[in-house]
Every structure is written in C-alpha cells, then in structure tokens.
Design a protein around this nucleic acid. Structure first.
Lengths: 132, 132
DNA sequence: CTTATTTCCTACTAAATTCATAGGAATTAT
DNA sequence: ATAATTCCTATGAATTTAGTAGGAAATAAG
C-alpha cells in the first residue's frame, strides 16, 4: 500500500479546511470531531503541513489552521509529498542509487509507474476533491 | 512504497527464468548466484509463485524451476499480485468496506490511482522486460 | 541401494515502520 | 488571570518486512 493513515488523514483535513472557505482559523478540535481523527495524532500531522507551507496556524485562543492557498492550487500530490516518506513505487527509484541501476531490466518500469502515480495525484486539487 | 523487496526479487527471478528459454528446470542455486538474492528467502518466494501457477517446479537432482507460460503472456501485474499483500493505493480500496465509503471525497481518487497502477503493471510482460 | 542434489514445509527473529498516546510548554484573545 | 489553542519531545504497542534455521521429502545418477 502506498498511502498511510497519516497521509489519508492529512488529505481529509485539507479538504475539510477547503470546505470552510475563508472564515478564519479552524481549531483542531473541530476538525478531529468532524473527521474522527485522533487529536494528538492530527496535531503532529498539522505541524508538518504548516512547516511545508500548505497551512498557516494561529496560536492561542480563537486560533486554529487555515489554508495558505486557494483550493484550486493545492493538489493531492502536494499534500502527500509532505506526509509520506516516499511516493516511489519501489526502493529502486528512491534517491540512493542501486548498484544494479545500469543493468536492471525492471528500473524503467518503476520509473514509468512513479510517473503514472504522480500524474494522477497532481490531477486532483482540493477543489476537485471537494466538488466530488 | 508499493513494492517490497520480495516483489522485486520475484520479478527479477521471473525475468531470469524467461531469459533461459526452454532449456529445462533452473535450480535455485543458479538464480540466487546470478541475482544475488538470499537463497532461503527466494525459496519461500518461489513456493508462492509455484502455488500461484506462474512457475513449475521439479524436485530432486537436476530439478529446479520453469515458467509455465511464454514470457509474452506473463505480466508484472500477474507476478506482483502474488507476492504483494496488496497493490491498492490506500486501505480505502482494500476489500473491507470503509464506513465512510458513501461520503468520502477521496475514495474516487484512490480508485483512479489503483487503476493507473494496474494499467502500467499489466502493460509490462516478461518479454518486454527482457528486451529492455 | 546409496548418495548428492534439489525442492518443500514450518518455525523463529531482528529491525524498522506505523499509529498512535502522554505531558507539558508557549502563545494569545477575552 | 484564565481558558483555549498550537507547539515540542518522548514513549510505546502492534504490525510488517526481510530475512535465518533446520530438517523432511523427492529424485536422478552412479
């Protein structure tokens, strides 16, 4: 399986944020209730999304989270690249070069697969996901 | 990452078998030497491939393994479906129904992704992989 | 019939990853 | 001052992955 619970949670929360529109920061409490995601786990995920610049946070009372971009400009690929250690189809295409790279008959296939996956994920924006 | 070492080993061994053509059973010993795969681990993998009907085995002296079909008729999808617990992109599309299935805005994307992955894997036969 | 070779079967294990849980510090509106 | 909220760091249980281990069963060749 490619996508972990963490990634799926992240995606769902981003969609929930997109659904709110521009109505001020949304506190985690509301999101976890709505989406049935463990509070403390989602907290960690939000931190990553903030650090990646996809989400902005406001601390203190009346604080919460906000999208930094319009939903049309944030894709599933953008989000999952933050939460997933790797979206590569196989170790073969993950950074470190395999010593067999030159001779391996399967490498081109892994590359084609990576591209196919990325093409799909890039093609879904939060706006698309919201409207179904 | 989608594909485990097990799956990658399986694929490489199948390609190695395809490269031998119809020259009698190939013993594991040769395959592990050639492909640098741990012997005992590959043994387990071969058993699965045999049970799945992709490979035939001959026990005893001069025994070994053989493809059951011509390389043109065996795809990467056929092989990986045997070795990988699941090729699904997310738990959401793995058998058991998610209670959110009806309302989940992300489900269609996971389905599209699964299809894209399968399309690529179905498109590579052992013959394709052999010839580069 | 004996021996060497080879697959088959079952069990075990170390390391990594995943999915959280826990406690409290820092920040901010009221 | 207080309540609400994010931020930071550590810990832990369960699962998965990638093997390792030992021997039983089958078969060809001498």
């Amino acid at each position: 399986m490619i996508v972990s619970a963490k990634g799926r949670y992240a995606l769902r929360v981003m969609i929930a944020l997109a659904a709110r529109g521009k109505s001020g920061p949304v506190p985690l409490k509301e999101l976890t209730a709505e989406e049935e995601i463990p509070h403390k786990f989602l907290e960690q995920i939000m931190t990553e999304l903030v650090k990646a610049g996809l989400v902005e946070s406001a601390r203190g009372k009346n604080g919460g989270y906000l999208l930094t971009r319009p939903p049309e400009e944030c894709t599933a690929a953008d989000i999952l690249r933050v939460t997933e250690a790797s979206l590569a189809s196989a170790e073969c295409t993950e950074g470190g070069e395999c010593p067999r790279a030159e001779i391996c008959p399967t490498l081109p296939m892994w590359k084609a697969l990576d591209e196919a996956i990325d093409d799909v994920l890039k093609n879904y924006t939060l706006a698309d996901l919201l409207s179904g």
